[in-house]
Design a binder for these strands. Structure first.
Lengths: 188, 188
DNA sequence: CCTAATAGTATCGTCGATAAACTAACTGGG
DNA sequence: CCCAGTTAGTTTATCGACGATACTATTAGG
């Protein structure tokens, strides 16, 4: 599943995508990492939309994240909102301009051209293999998996309502579609 | 072959690898990009071991590359050598310390742990699919393919000797195993 | 030749990244 | 209760990647 050649391919593909992403982000006074963060936030559930979680997702420090987030806020792309229960925690929400910018710039056009050329031929297989690869990476390094809420081992149903057995809270239906910082794979 | 989910996976996998690569590179006064450049140079043939080529491979500007290369030279990891035919061209060779450092730090340990866990199960399939993906990306954006010399449409044999039909020169056997800036895929 | 193109360098400004020190808020055991 | 320990986030300082631009030196070609 993993060898040097696969590593080389991933490194080069992502270097090229990154370079293209920079071209898209720069006119908006942004860098690739900002678009990655915006994209993450657009998919994170309510337990996972914090600076800390973004940092864990991208493998960057919290100090760095604090900086990135204040840039995004200053540009009006996200809105900060402090948690009602725990005043230390900040939730980050995309604003309408943020969503618009994300849709406009991400993924970069080189990827979209690719999508047009290669119409979903074998996408499923690649998706599954990369998923397995990521899970291996996560397992080997104690990273968080950031999987979809409803695929989590703690996901339950109580009286027709979705429920998180780890955090012991009920879940809105739309939250279960999003990715969660606390996500854990079923024990193999 | 390409959809948003595949994009997300590649972005996240490479973000985590990049973060880990930084941890490995920093003790040596280096950044991830330096290791990527060293790795490229270790695999480039004699037409492709120039600052320009490294920049094209990684999607970065030549000015940036010029800087990176002088850092690597100052640390004694590479050696510059000007071309005999064209005095503008500089060839970059790994030194023994450069090779040692590369072996020590690249790929980062998170990847090696992965390799130990998932012994070559389905590596072939993933490799082929990512290769196809990269070729699509290359084709859609007029990037160079940087394939192995001997897989190039201009690769020939003349009297038992390998020969490049594009550059019109004979090739040493070991050069044909390496990657080439001028590489072109066979017309489909 | 003289012009245009090419490989590489030098210099500049911006800003992403880490580390470390800091504040504020929560938690839990006496 | 309170105080020690922990956690979320910010701040500050330092470093250096990166793009842009202008520059030099060499080569190609009409």
């Amino acid at each position: 599943m993993a060898n040097k050649r696969v590593f080389d391919l991933i490194e080069r593909i992502s270097a090229l995508l990154r370079s293209d992403s920079r071209r898209h982000a720069m006119p908006h006074e942004l860098q690739p990492v900002h678009l990655q963060a915006l994209d993450y936030l657009s998919r994170a559930n309510c337990f996972s939309d914090t600076p800390q979680a973004v940092g864990e997702y991208l493998g960057l420090t919290k100090g760095n994240m604090s900086q990135r987030m204040s840039v995004l806020e200053k540009l009006g792309l996200i809105r900060k909102e402090s948690d009602e229960r725990d005043a230390r925690v900040v939730h980050l929400h995309l604003t309408a301009p943020g969503k618009r910018l994300l849709q406009l710039t991400y993924p970069p056009s080189s990827w979209r051209d690719l999508e047009n050329r290669m119409r979903s031929k074998g996408a499923r297989a690649l998706e599954e293999e990369l998923t397995e690869l990521l899970h291996g990476l996560v397992a080997a390094n104690d990273f968080r998996s950031f999987g979809q809420c409803k695929t989590c081992r703690f996901h339950q149903r109580k009286a027709g309502q979705a429920f998180c057995g780890l955090l012991q809270v009920e879940l809105e239906a739309d939250q279960t579609e999003k990715i969660c910082r606390e996500h854990q794979l079923a024990t193999a």
